[in-house]
Simulated assay, not measured.
Amino acid sequence: MLVTETDVVIIGAGPAGLAVGALLRQAGISFVIIEKNDSVGSSWKGHYDRLRLHTSKKYSHLPGLPFPESYPDFVPKQDFADYLDIYATRYGIEPIFGEEVIRVAKEQNNNVFIVETDNGNLWVSKSVIICTGFNRKPVMPKPDGYDIFKGPQIHSSDYENGNVFSDQNVMVVGMGNTGAEIAMDLSDHGAKTFVSVRNPINVVPLEFRGRPTQHTNIILNKYLPSFITDMIGNIIKNCHYHDMTKYGLNIDKKSPGKMLRKEGKTPVIDQGTMDYIRQGKIEVKPELTKVREHWAWFCDESMIDIDAIIFATGFKSAVEEFVEGGEELLNPYGNPYSAIPGGQWSGMYFLGFNAYKSGILYSIQKESPKIVNHLKEYLRQF
């Protein structure tokens, strides 16, 4: 067993961990970053090939290093992965790889944190910054008949591209941003593509009047009250997607912004999926109720032959699994309720869990300096 003391332990070497690490380096505060995988940004690098950022590069870069001018406005996965490697090198960030944190506990008497990994190593620190993010643990449902279905059943986190599904009947379960994009990818690779959608969805265009919808949202929210921005959001949505019911897709009547604020649900940022549905390249089905060897049934009692199922059913942050007493830190959506919880949790911070306004990367850009400034003051007591 190795026991190490440091000022700060950062858990996770994704965008959030790198951002706060860079700012701590500039502030002269000692830290270690512990990462369970073998590279920085490993979860991003493991996403499907087609992925690109759904948010503008202006609002998606990390502190201190804008994206190169040569990058497109919506940065592709590989370019973003390269950017994260460059960022780590620029700020001299060298995480400890291959160590998964299994326990974080605060010793109130000593006012320090104990961080333990699966390799049995311990870190004793004055502060902990948890950057494991929304996507730590895939949510994988098991519908009736899951164990007798003959084809592949994978979570979207294991999907790479549609090459292996060419000429097959493939069903995507779930239509968030990931499900919508994977459905397009499958269709482009020659699969007969179905998407099972249980509830009404909210959707916004990727761009509005030639500029990213995210940019328009940020500007409107800066100057207008939420009820007016909600009204504008619904007008835009209804103009673009008023006809989707006839294709079997129900659009939620609530504005995208209100749903995000009140229910923690990110709208689908449409990169072309709606046109694929209109063109018949993707067929919408209602809630999946059961599967058998080569078939799938839905709540409207319809049935289709199916060769493979991809569950785009999301993730959960599950920080309570390794933070002792972490249940008290969660909001109704199961994520940390604050970047700086304070109280008995003073010295603990959360970064990369706030997508309730304008996206995760934008929140990292804005919240990381606030955390570091607060941490500077917190460390003065030692």
Rank of each mutant, 00 (worst) to 15 (best):
E320N: 10
A339M: 14
E99F: 07
V112Q: 05
P267A: 07
M175Q: 15
L288S: 05
E116N: 13
S42W: 10
K222D: 15
S363G: 01
G190E: 09
V197Y: 00
E321V: 08
G347L: 07
N221C: 05
E181T: 08
G46E: 09
R292P: 00
S43A: 08
D82Q: 09
G174P: 03
E35V: 05
R25N: 12
S43L: 15
V75S: 01
M175Y: 05
T132S: 04
E5V: 09
V8T: 06
K281M: 12
I228A: 02
R292H: 06
K370I: 15
F350Y: 03
I340N: 13
V139P: 02
F74Q: 01
K237A: 02
I251D: 03
G162M: 06
P256S: 03
K246N: 14
A183V: 07
F67D: 06
M259V: 15
E116Y: 03
A13M: 06
D275H: 05
S42D: 10
P267S: 14
G264W: 04
I232W: 01
N177P: 02
H294S: 10
S226A: 11
R211I: 12
V75P: 07
D252I: 01
H54V: 06
L260Y: 00
V8M: 06
K253Q: 11
I96M: 09
I102Y: 05
E160D: 08
Y378N: 03
V101D: 05
D38Q: 14
Y146S: 13
G14H: 08
L65G: 03
Q381F: 14
I228C: 02
